[in-house]
């Protein structure tokens, strides 16, 4: 008998009272509303999925090109294209309601009122188990990151939407800030039940021959393996600063990467760009993580979270 196959591991995690089968969650904006990837594998095997950022009104997003490949990463400037809350309810909620995995509704807005409206509507849906508040999108002029830079505004918007939120509230932090610990504390003080970080890092690509930016929006958000060291540092710093759970993300490509985020202080992780690089990433990571835990004789994810020795 192979000892490795006999060793049983528990990949489940509970965040703010919500049970996840495993700590692998697909990140907002890289997984649509799940349907597209359901063609490749059973997405119910995932710990959770995060919806595309939803706003009060339908948005058409930015002009194209919206993507640029960079060394070990990519820039995007989609600009929150989404069907709006009403369109989401009509077109996507029926499918999401049929799933047996945690669905997190990612919500964005232009104004505080828009945020509150969308949070109230989306968090009231049965299929939505948690809200991820996107105050860190670098690709829209008004709103988005405007709320996510200064700790005061992070606390203010968190406090405002918390009143309207029927489900646990996860605040997604931007890395484009002076001190991530201050912003993490500000979200906690505002009433966030947990945090997710990092959103994309502001960046730019230049086509020097044409003297033009590669992205139509000029600048965009950097993601992929290139940002992993930045993300690990920020998860580590945020974990030290707050008591609420942290969902870590930034450049995760493998189960080893997942472990690094857990050790740095994350209870679960989100996987973004890697879905874009390979449609099977989500299921591969779930399987790889289970195998890695078996190989390393780790019984539970909780043994790993925040286990960093400095």
């Amino acid at each position: 008998m192979n000892e490795q196959t006999e060793y049983t591991v528990d990949t489940a995690v509970r965040i703010c009272g919500v049970d996840f089968k495993n700590p692998i969650i697909t990140a907002s904006g890289t997984f649509g509303f799940g349907k597209e990837y359901a063609e490749f594998y059973d997405i119910n095997a995932l710990g959770g999925i995060c919806t595309k950022g939803l706003t009060k009104e339908r948005r058409e997003g930015n002009a194209s090109p919206r993507i640029a490949e960079t060394p070990m990463g990519m820039l995007n400037s989609v600009g929150l294209q989404n069907p709006g809350v009403e369109g989401f309810i009509l077109e996507d909620v029926p499918f999401l309601s049929s799933l047996d995995t945690v669905v997190i509704g990612n919500v964005a807005g232009r104004t505080e009122e828009d945020y509150c409206y969308a949070v109230e509507k989306v968090s009231a849906l049965d299929c939505i188990r948690m809200i991820e508040l996107n105050i860190s999108c670098p690709n829209v002029k008004a709103g988005g990151m405007a709320f996510g830079v200064l700790p005061e505004s992070v606390e203010k918007i968190t406090k405002a939407v918390k009143k309207y939120c029927h489900k646990p509230l996860m605040v997604k932090l931007s890395p484009n800030v002076a001190n991530i610990a201050d912003n993490a504390r500000a979200a906690e003080n505002g009433g966030a039940d947990c945090l997710s970080l990092i959103n994309t890092v502001g960046g730019m690509a230049v086509d020097w021959r044409r003297r033009r930016p590669v992205l139509a929006n000029v600048c965009g958000g950097l993601s992929g393996p290139a940002v992993k060291p930045i993300a690990l540092k920020m998860v580590y710093e945020a974990h030290k600063a707050v008591k609420i759970p942290i969902v870590g993300m930034g450049g995760i490509m493998s189960a080893e990467d997942v472990m690094e985020f857990l050790v740095a202080g994350a209870t679960a992780v989100e996987v973004g760009s890697a879905n874009i690089f390979d449609p099977h990433t989500g299921i591969n990571l779930v399987n790889e993580l289970t195998n890695l835990m078996k190989r390393c004789k780790i019984k539970s994810v909780y043994e790993v979270t925040g286990s960093l020795v400095v």
């Binding site: 904006g29 649509g32 597209e36 993507i67 879905n275």
Partner: peptide, 10 residues
């Protein structure tokens, strides 16, 4: 980006 309709970059 993804080529499957999810990421909205194309």
């Amino acid at each position: 980006g993804c080529g499957v309709g999810a990421c909205l970059v194309c």
